[in-house]
Simulated scan of single mutants.
Amino acid sequence: MGVSVAHLDRSEISSYSIEIRKIIEDRSNSKLLILDMGGYFSECLGLIAKDLDGDLCGIIEDTENGLRRYQKLPSLSAPLYTVADSSLKRSENILVGLSMLEGVQKVIERNAINNPTATYGLIGFGRIGEEISHLLRRRKADFMVFDENPIKVIHARSLGYRVATKRNLLALSDIILSATGGQSLDDSNLRDIKNGAIIASITSSDDEFGFSEGTYRSFEPYGHLLDRMKSGNRQVFLINGGNAVNFAVDPNIGASISILHGEIIVALWLLATSNADDAGKINRVTQRDREEIASEWVEVFAAEAVDK
């Protein structure tokens, strides 16, 4: 069975673009399957399903933020599989958190900013935020945590992490790591941010921040992947325009991501062979399938590491 793959960037996805319509028109009666990373097809899913008239096999969503976007829809026009909350995703979360920390460090070093005793402020104690906290603890870094969700605050405290209000975190942190996917900072927070602080995001700027266009324009290029907003004697730095620092510095997060890719392939097969549940339901690969994927990964990659 031949398979054609079309790659679209975000500017071609959020609306029912010419590029999407062309894919539908040129498909030669083939069925279509969407692999999404961020929920960007959610805005035009209804139109796509309508024009495909039953030929949309379904959607696979990779991220928690994307899953939330699909969950906000009144109804789903096609079957959806998510791997966002998979038990196999933790290894990826660890590597994403690690790549964020290393990315920030590389930007700081590249721009000759020296602050060995920097205090980190982590906004967001979700799956990736928690892994970042573990990494910071192992590095013996000084850091504090904030989350809007009181349940996550209790969880952070139970693990022995220092929890702060958002205002205090912003006022005391030299490096602010934002990992919420939910517009954690906006213009009203700028006055609270410590002078000279560096802000970094784990995802796209429009998902992570609610800054106005005027605020973004006030940031001017300062150095490698670093912009600066200056007002009088105060200055605030923003890495990579507020977009994910990890992929800008080093997009390769190692073989462990293959575990999740294995689950995505299983979901692709289930959708392509019509083994998915009804269109209005969010589906997940079974735990048994996940265990088989993990077993295959261990056989290939763990054995490879031992051989080396």
Score class of each variant (00 low, 15 high):
E12G: 08
G103V: 03
E102G: 01
G126Y: 06
I128D: 00
N189K: 02
I132P: 11
F125E: 04
Q71N: 12
R138A: 15
S184D: 07
I175P: 03
S205I: 14
R68P: 03
S28R: 15
N240I: 08
G66T: 08
S87A: 14
M37N: 14
A112Y: 14
E130G: 02
S212Q: 02
V163K: 01
Q183I: 03
N275Q: 14
L271F: 03
K72W: 10
V285K: 09
E109A: 14
Y16I: 04
A303L: 11
P79W: 08
L159I: 01
T215R: 00
N233K: 15
H134I: 12
I239M: 15
Q235S: 15
D250Y: 02
E64F: 11
D51L: 04
E19H: 11
V285H: 09
V249P: 08
L8P: 06
T180S: 03
N243I: 06
H261A: 14
F209K: 08
A244Q: 05
L159V: 01
G54Q: 09
G210W: 00
I24T: 00
S231M: 13
V83A: 03
A156I: 09
E92Y: 09
R68S: 04
S204V: 12
E131N: 07
D55M: 08
G232P: 09
T82I: 00
I18V: 12
S184I: 06
G232V: 00
A305I: 14
L185H: 02
N283A: 13
F247C: 10
S15E: 13
L35N: 12
S205N: 11
I175D: 04
R157W: 04
L56R: 07
A171D: 06
R284S: 03
A294D: 01
H224W: 15
L170A: 04
D207F: 01
I176D: 04
V107M: 10
N246L: 01
L56G: 09
A276Y: 07
I282A: 07
I176A: 00
S256H: 15
Q71D: 07
E64W: 11
I257E: 10
E148R: 14
K72H: 13
T119P: 02
L47N: 11
N149K: 08
G210Y: 02
R127H: 05
N252E: 15
G262R: 04
F41Q: 00
G38C: 10
H7C: 11
L88K: 00
I239D: 05
I282W: 05
N283T: 05
K230I: 14
D55R: 12
M100N: 12
